[in-house]
Structure formats: C-alpha cells, structure tokens
Amino acid sequence: MNGSLSKGGGSFLIDHPLDPANKSLYHSFVESPDMKNIYDGVTQLDNAGKATVALPAWFESLNSDFRYQLTAIGAAAPNLHIAQEVHNKQFQIAGGKAGMKVSWQVTGIRQDAWAKANRIPVEVNKSTTERGRYHHPEVFGATKEQGIGYHTPHTQQAPTRPFRPTKKS
C-alpha cells in the first residue's frame, strides 16, 4: 500500500532511510498530532552512575526534535539526567547510583522524505455529508446507520434463471 491511511490503529512501511533502494522499515502507529516515533528501554548505570544508550543506525536520519524521559528503578535519583543528547546514534545518562537500573524513553518526529511531504492536518471539520455521523458510532451509543460510510443494504435482486442448454433435434 502506498500513501496515507486513516484507521483505528496499525503500522507504516517506508523505504529505509539509510538504504531506501534495498530495505524497508516498519513502525507502529503512535497516536499523536505529530508523526511521532517512540523508543524505550531499560539500562543499568556503570560504577560512575552513567550509561550510554545505543540507538539504531537510522535513528537520526528518521527522527528530529527529540524528547527524553528517565525513571529511576528501585530508588529515588534526584540527580538523574540526560548528560548528552542524541548524537552519533547514542545518548548518555548520568547522575544516578552505581548499578541502578533506569527506564528511558526518547521520542522523535519523523523527518524522512515521505513524512515531510505528507504531514497530516491535526483538526478538520467534517464535510457536510459527514456532520452528525461518526467514524465509530458504537462507542458513542449511536446506531450503525449513523456511521460515516454506512450504506443502506441493497434490496435483493430477483433470482436469475439457471442456464439450461437447449436440446438439438
């Protein structure tokens, strides 16, 4: 499938940003007004209370505008922080205790060629024919007939006569 798709959930498939002629890249949809990608994991801090988190080779080609989230596991870590932002396929965490586990999350906005050419409008008015109708009527307590795209079932056509070859004399 090519182009955009609007649905309740799913994934996207694009040409790989580092090898578009030979590879493809799959990602799940994230519900956001941005074309946002989310990456996360858990790392353990070294004896100096630091960790370097490695990211995929294509990370910086595919994403921009990074946001970070850190959560210390097992104990408070008021000095835990991003010591170095994403650069050369990695970022660094510091300020925790030796051996501490840290849950991390980094988000980025897609910046591949397809995403740049196909940004989505965030908020739009429904068309005249869609007003008063729903994409998912059942979750609003509405009937299926109130769904966008609902079509009245066609009346059943009269059965056709079966083919019977004529006898030759």
Rank of each mutant, 00 (worst) to 15 (best):
M1G: 11
N2S: 04
L5G: 01
G8D: 02
I14R: 08
D15T: 07
D15S: 01
D19Y: 05
D19G: 05
A21C: 01
N22L: 04
K23N: 06
S24G: 03
S24Q: 12
L25R: 02
Y26W: 13
F29Q: 08
F29D: 11
E31C: 08
D34I: 01
K36V: 02
K36C: 02
N37C: 08
I38K: 09
D40I: 02
G41W: 02
V42F: 00
G49M: 08
K50Y: 03
V53M: 05
A54K: 10
A57I: 02
E60N: 02
S64V: 12
S64R: 14
Q69W: 01
L70S: 03
L70E: 01
L70Y: 03
A72R: 11
I73S: 10
A75Y: 01
A76C: 09
A77L: 01
A77R: 03
I82S: 04
I82V: 13
A83E: 11
F91M: 05
A98H: 10
G99A: 15
G99Q: 10
V102N: 14
W104T: 09
V106F: 11
G108N: 00
I109V: 14
R110N: 07
Q111R: 13
A113K: 12
W114Q: 02
I120Q: 14
I120W: 11
V124M: 15
S127C: 06
E130P: 09
E130L: 13
E130G: 15
R131P: 05
R133D: 12
Y134F: 15
H135M: 04
H136E: 15
H136F: 13
P137E: 14
E138F: 00
V139M: 11
F140I: 06
F140M: 13
T143N: 12
T143L: 13
K144I: 10
K144M: 02
E145G: 14
Q146P: 10
I148H: 03
H151A: 11
P153Q: 00
P153V: 01
T155L: 00
F163H: 13
T166P: 09
K168D: 02
